[in-house]
Amino acid sequence: MPSSHEIDYKIYGDDMQFVEIELDPQESVIAEAGGMMYMENGIEMQTIFGDASGKEAGGLMGKLLGAGKRVLTGESLFMTVFTNEGKGKQHVSFGAPYPGKIIPVDLTQYQGKIICQKDAFLCAAKGVSVGLEFQKKIGVGFFGGEGFIMQKLEGDGLAFLHAGGTIVEKELAYGESLRVDTGCLVGFTKDVSYDVQFVGGVKTAFFGGEGLFFATVSGPGKVWIQSLPFSRMADRVFEASRKAGGGQSKDEGSVLDTLGGIGKFFSGD
Rank of each mutant, 00 (worst) to 15 (best):
67 A>W: 02
67 A>Q: 02
67 A>I: 00
68 G>D: 08
70 R>T: 03
71 V>H: 11
71 V>N: 04
72 L>R: 12
73 T>V: 07
73 T>L: 11
74 G>F: 05
75 E>T: 12
75 E>D: 09
75 E>G: 12
76 S>N: 14
76 S>Q: 06
77 L>F: 08
77 L>I: 06
77 L>G: 05
79 M>S: 12
79 M>H: 02
80 T>E: 10
80 T>G: 06
81 V>K: 09
81 V>P: 03
82 F>D: 02
83 T>G: 12
83 T>D: 15
83 T>V: 09
83 T>F: 09
84 N>T: 07
84 N>E: 08
84 N>C: 06
84 N>A: 12
85 E>M: 13
85 E>T: 14
85 E>V: 09
86 G>Y: 10
86 G>S: 11
87 K>S: 14
87 K>G: 15
88 G>Y: 11
89 K>Y: 12
90 Q>Y: 09
91 H>L: 04
91 H>P: 00
92 V>G: 00
92 V>N: 00
93 S>M: 03
94 F>I: 05
94 F>W: 05
94 F>A: 01
94 F>T: 08
94 F>R: 03
95 G>H: 08
95 G>M: 12
96 A>C: 03
96 A>I: 05
96 A>G: 04
98 Y>N: 13
98 Y>L: 10
99 P>F: 14
100 G>D: 09
101 K>A: 15
101 K>G: 08
102 I>M: 00
102 I>W: 01
104 P>V: 01
104 P>S: 05
108 T>R: 15
108 T>F: 08
108 T>L: 07
109 Q>K: 13
110 Y>K: 06
111 Q>D: 15
112 G>N: 05
113 K>D: 06
115 I>M: 04
117 Q>W: 05
117 Q>N: 15
118 K>D: 10
118 K>P: 02
119 D>Y: 09
119 D>H: 13
121 F>G: 00
121 F>Y: 14
122 L>S: 04
123 C>N: 07
124 A>M: 14
125 A>E: 06
125 A>T: 05
125 A>M: 01
125 A>S: 13
127 G>Q: 05
128 V>G: 11
128 V>P: 08
128 V>I: 15
128 V>D: 09
129 S>R: 11
130 V>L: 12
130 V>R: 04
131 G>P: 07
131 G>D: 14
132 L>T: 12
132 L>A: 06
132 L>D: 11
136 K>G: 09
136 K>D: 15
137 K>Q: 13
137 K>L: 11
138 I>E: 13
138 I>N: 07
139 G>C: 10
143 F>P: 01
143 F>N: 14
